[in-house]
Design a protein around this nucleic acid. Structure first.
Lengths: 341, 341
DNA sequence: GAGCTGGAATGAAACCTTTCATGTGACGCA
DNA sequence: TGCGTCACATGAAAGGTTTCATTCCAGCTC
């Protein structure tokens, strides 16, 4: 009723000691059957609910890890979150999902919250390459793994090789015979964007093409709206200078571009081909299914969680590792491929 | 360094008492400037971080509310979450985002976790209409507000009138001259699905049409895959019996149907018109922009949070309310409307 | 110089759980 | 009968923060 019964109340009601109640809760095998039943009945009657704060205080640490992502609205990250949850649950840990919304101040806020909560560790896809606040927290002994962002030796990270990703995307466009290609993405200070562009350049050069002929259309954000704006710019170009294919830094951008192309009466891939990145479910579900660079999202989440758990359980012997997955090109209709899921 | 400096350590280092350190932290105006500086310096040097568990234990409650949604992968819910976060942040509260993934066992698990954490209150879009576990928790004094699910008098809820939503969707199809209409949605035990269908029926009858002529195509889940399967069924129908328009219970279904239609070479809206529900961003971003029933998602989140905060801060005088928003039809190309955002 | 005032600092108590060294009693065996 | 063993049960201590009644002290007034 009161929502405030404590072990003490339970003990009194059951006519046993405090410690016995605790034993029933945590080591039931050490308690006699009769006593156990009495205690369980008392718990039931009083509506006793364990106070996690007191438990944690006593234990000195929580059973929680934090997952701090750039954008919960992006299916890419919710898919990662699914992998994290799965792995964490099997280790008996809870996940605290936090959204920095790509803002440094929010990232810092949540880092503080997680540290005050005595989270066991933190999985973070950082807003910027080098957050001093994160450095401090790690220096105080907090385990942390970077997600979707490659780190230096001094820290664990799990990422996908974005340079290779950019490379296979543009190589595919070149092989398919597209001559005028544009890269769509930004802001360019994001690692993901920079690497994918540099991979694109690499493929371009490998094909012996003039670097200056790879147009870059910069966006302000990696979302659908940014893609639509870019789509307008493309549509406004004179047809003979318009790229015949674009490679977008993520699927949200690609979907925005696709929408705008269709709206302007341009055919995809007839007038312009599109390659996205991430291969979120909406990419395959688009009316013109998107060719995209698939990242193993759930696996990314699982691997990161595994590393984190390793660092947590054996901080002494733990050696930081940088896991890098290989991306995979999925060809669909938006570059003239067969429709497939 | 140790990540384990306590107020006691800080007090010793600064040469003051425990209580003074606490005052610096919580009521700095009551502390002399000189003392305050000493304490702050000690905090800095030791890397002291407040232990939230101890704080909470002492306070008896946390500064956290739980948000338990059906599917974090659905943008509809992440948009609600954005509204909740905004409102909660302005009240100085943190939000714990939990994903039941439409599974009752996970919902129950998170409810227990939230109660043990002594969350201030819970916002929940429930898996089923009547969860006894939630009832128990509420009986013990936990504040709770249902989200996207209308409740009875005994509880607060924030929802959108799904009957009206279904009505305006189908009325629009009738007015636009579509004769053979199908409803796509399921499982039908979900409130949302049942209400939207009943609204659809209402509009159908109002137009004087035979109730039996409104086909119902049931799905097993409200996602893109379910939509695609339904799309296959539709495409397999003989053209003369095929509906000329479908009303889908949510946008994910609608996007799935749309994709399949295009893949099968059917024109939208020429061969078949589509209306979705929720108006998530991907609806407008689809290659054939979707006509959809817009729900005020962020506002839903804000309103629910407001109600919850009210219930938390004045549990005695609080009277449960059922807030119901009106949905709004957004006409786009998928039913022959002008393309718009 | 005694007494008073108010701002500033103090430290013990309380919050609730878990752990662990200790206590109790029953039972079997010599 | 006495002793050892075993299975349970006990209760005090610890963990870090906040609160609040108390104490302290410098400065002021009469």
């Amino acid at each position: 009723m009161a929502g405030s019964a404590s072990v003490k109340d339970v003990a009194r009601r059951a006519g046993v000691s405090l410690g016995t109640v605790s034993n029933v809760l945590n080591r039931p095998e050490r308690v006699g059957k009769e006593t156990k039943d009495k205690v369980l009945r008392a718990i039931e009657e009083l509506g006793f609910v364990r106070n996690e704060a007191a438990r944690q205080l006593r234990a000195g640490r929580s059973r929680t890890i934090g997952l701090l992502v750039l954008d919960v609205g992006n299916p890419f990250f919710t898919d990662i979150a699914a992998g994290v949850e799965e792995m964490a649950a099997s280790a008996g840990l809870s996940v605290l999902l936090c959204n920095s919304a790509e803002r440094q101040e929010r990232e810092d806020h949540y880092l503080s919250v997680l540290e005050e909560q005595r989270a066991l560790g933190i999985l973070i896809s950082p807003v910027s390459g080098n957050n001093p606040h994160l450095g401090e927290i790690r220096a105080r002994g907090m385990a942390a793994v970077l997600v979707d962002h490659r780190s230096t030796r001094r820290q664990c990270s799990v990422s996908v090789d974005d340079v290779v990703g950019g490379e296979i995307a543009v190589a595919h466009l070149i092989e398919s015979g597209y001559e005028r290609v544009a890269f769509v993405g930004g802001p360019t200070n994001l690692n993901q964007v920079a690497d994918r562009l540099s991979g694109a350049r690499k493929a371009w050069q490998t094909a012996g093409r003039d670097d200056r002929r790879l147009t870059v259309l910069e966006t302000t954000a990696l979302n659908v709206a940014g893609g639509r704006q870019t789509g307008e710019r493309i549509a406004a170009m004179p047809a003979r200078r318009r790229p015949s294919a674009v490679f977008c830094a993520n699927d949200l951008l690609a979907l925005g571009v696709l929408q705008e192309m269709t709206r302007q009466g341009l055919d995809v891939p007839g007038d312009i081909a599109i390659v996205g990145y991430d291969d979120i479910d909406f990419a395959a579900a688009a009316a013109v299914p998107l060719t995209s660079v698939r990242q193993p999202r759930a696996q990314l989440g699982r691997a990161a969680t595994e590393l984190l758990i390793e660092e947590i359980s054996a901080p002494e012997t733990h050696r930081h590792r940088q896991v890098v997955f290989e991306p995979e090109l999925v060809v669909r209709a938006s570059t003239g491929g067969q429709t497939s899921s």
